[in-house]
Amino acid sequence: MAADFDLTLDCADAKVLAEFWKTALGYVDEPPPAPFTTREEWLAQFDLPDDDSADDGAWLCDPDGVGPRLSILKVPEPKTAKNRLHIDVRVPGGGSPGERWARVRAESERLVKEGGSVLEEFGGHHIVMADPEGNEFCVAAASA
């Protein structure tokens, strides 16, 4: 049996990054674990430093329960190097290679409008992008 897993992104601004990744992945804010009704209540059970707040993190999930959860956590140090692990955003839909590539380009353009940036384009295959804090990810067509 395969293990469940979550992905975690370190960041400087959890709210900004959460909004970007909700848009990019179609994810939603994950509700706090039962019996808590807010993230603030849930966080209060931990012995966190006084300057920590619920705004220092975001917890996202696939509304269909299929994809991994994504935690976005504020850290004090800045990003300094290329990611060793990155997310591939797969654009759905079949059709010809040209049609699939047009959807990949349209998705990358949409994500640029949301604060992402294009780093490199591998024509017909995938586009390497960065989120608003410079975390690299790729946009590619879903497997046919």
Rank of each mutant, 00 (worst) to 15 (best):
L111R: 02
L17A: 06
G98H: 02
S117V: 05
A34G: 03
G116D: 00
G65A: 03
P76I: 04
H125P: 06
V75W: 10
A54H: 10
G95P: 11
L119S: 15
H126R: 15
R103T: 00
H126T: 03
P76F: 01
F46M: 04
P35Q: 11
E40F: 08
A130M: 13
A106Y: 07
D13F: 10
F20I: 05
M1I: 05
A3N: 12
C138K: 09
H125Y: 08
G93L: 14
E30I: 10
A44W: 06
A54K: 01
G124H: 07
D6Q: 14
L70M: 08
F20E: 03
S53F: 02
E41V: 07
D51T: 12
R69N: 13
G94Y: 04
P132C: 06
F122S: 05
D56Q: 07
A2Q: 08
R103G: 12
D88E: 05
T80H: 02
A140Q: 12
A106M: 06
W101C: 04
A142E: 13
I87Y: 02
V112Y: 11
E41M: 09
P132F: 14
D50W: 04
G93Q: 09
P31V: 00
K79R: 13
S108G: 05
P76L: 08
R39D: 07
I127T: 06
T38P: 14
R90I: 03
D62H: 10
L9N: 13
L17E: 01
L48M: 15
D56L: 13
T23M: 02
R105C: 15
R100T: 08
R84G: 09
G116C: 10
A18P: 00
E19C: 04
R69W: 15
G124S: 08
G65W: 01
R90G: 02
C61S: 08
G123K: 15
L111A: 02
W59R: 13
A144V: 15
S117F: 03
E99W: 00
W42S: 13
D47S: 07
D52V: 14
L85E: 14
N83S: 14
E121N: 02
D13E: 06
A14D: 14
T37E: 15
P76N: 11
V112L: 08
E30R: 07
E107M: 05
V75C: 15
E109R: 09
D56K: 06
D64M: 07
V104P: 00
S117M: 14
V139E: 09
G123F: 05
E41D: 15
S71M: 14
D10I: 04
C61M: 08
M129N: 05
R69K: 10
P132I: 09
E121P: 01
H86Y: 12
F122P: 01
D50R: 12
R39G: 04
G116F: 09
G98K: 10
G26S: 11
W59P: 01
A2S: 07
R103M: 10
K15E: 10
A144M: 14
E133C: 08
L48V: 05
D50P: 11
G94E: 05
S71Q: 11
A106T: 13
R110M: 09
L111W: 02
F46Y: 11
D50Q: 13
P31N: 02
C61A: 14
P63S: 00
D88H: 00
D131R: 01
P49C: 00
A140M: 13
A34H: 12
E77G: 07
P76A: 03
A54L: 06
S117P: 00
H86Q: 06
G134P: 01
L73R: 12
D64F: 01
P32M: 04
L85A: 06
